[in-house]
Computed example of a mutant assay.
Amino acid sequence: MFDGFEEFDIDTPGATIHERRGGSGPPVLLLHGIPETHLMWHQVAPRLAEHYTVVATDLRGWGDSGKPPSSLDHEPYSMRAIARDQVAVMRSLGHERFGLVGHDRGARCAYRLALDEPDVVTRLAVMDVVPIGDVYDRANRTFSLSYWVWSFLAAPAPVPEQFIDAAPAVLVDFMLDTWPEVQDAFPAEVRTA
């Protein structure tokens, strides 16, 4: 897995970020979704590395990246803070401008990064992310079944951490088993917007 890639950590002002890098050519940053890590790109990254310098990171709080303490307003885990980590990583590797690909939670980070640092992003691709405005406009029972995890994860520490630590497989299995059917309950125009 990730043949020809190097694995290392980079210290940013906000957290230590774990990553893999491989290939050569224009730089592309890959951001994972929930409940994944950079390993989700193990089949995509080597193919992209045939033409690009590929960087795949674990977002702050996930995988082998740092997990700094949060605050009452959760700012240390905001998409803005996580995006700053990613810009710092790419700059430390000598990439002032780069392509950006985000999946799910990584897509939210990619949006924020592109909004905050438009001169840094050369191309942007976001995948498997539901437009929040449409979701809130159509909130119903399906919404509560699908998005409970975001309220749960936003609870004050150590509540989510202790629940997850007690039964991580139960949480991940429930999320992965129920999300496809919940996503199918949204109209096609919301899923593909």
Rank of each mutant, 00 (worst) to 15 (best):
G102M: 02
V129G: 02
V55F: 00
V172R: 13
E50V: 02
A169V: 05
G4A: 05
G63Y: 08
E50G: 10
P158E: 05
V172P: 06
A83N: 07
D128M: 03
S24F: 07
P35Y: 06
W62Y: 15
L145E: 12
A154F: 12
W62A: 15
A169T: 08
G106K: 06
P76L: 08
R80P: 00
D58T: 01
G61C: 13
G102Y: 01
Q162G: 02
V149S: 07
H51M: 03
E75R: 15
D184N: 04
G133P: 00
H74F: 11
E6H: 14
I10A: 10
A185R: 05
N140L: 07
N140Q: 11
G133Q: 08
L153H: 14
S92Y: 02
E6Y: 10
E96P: 03
R191F: 09
F174G: 00
G4V: 03
I34F: 15
V54C: 09
D165M: 07
R108Y: 00
R91G: 05
L176N: 14
F5W: 13
H103Q: 06
V159L: 15
G23I: 10
I164E: 06
A154T: 03
V101M: 13
G61L: 12
E7I: 00
D137K: 11
F5C: 05
D64K: 15
T16P: 00
I164T: 07
V101P: 13
D11L: 12
V159I: 15
V159N: 04
D128H: 04
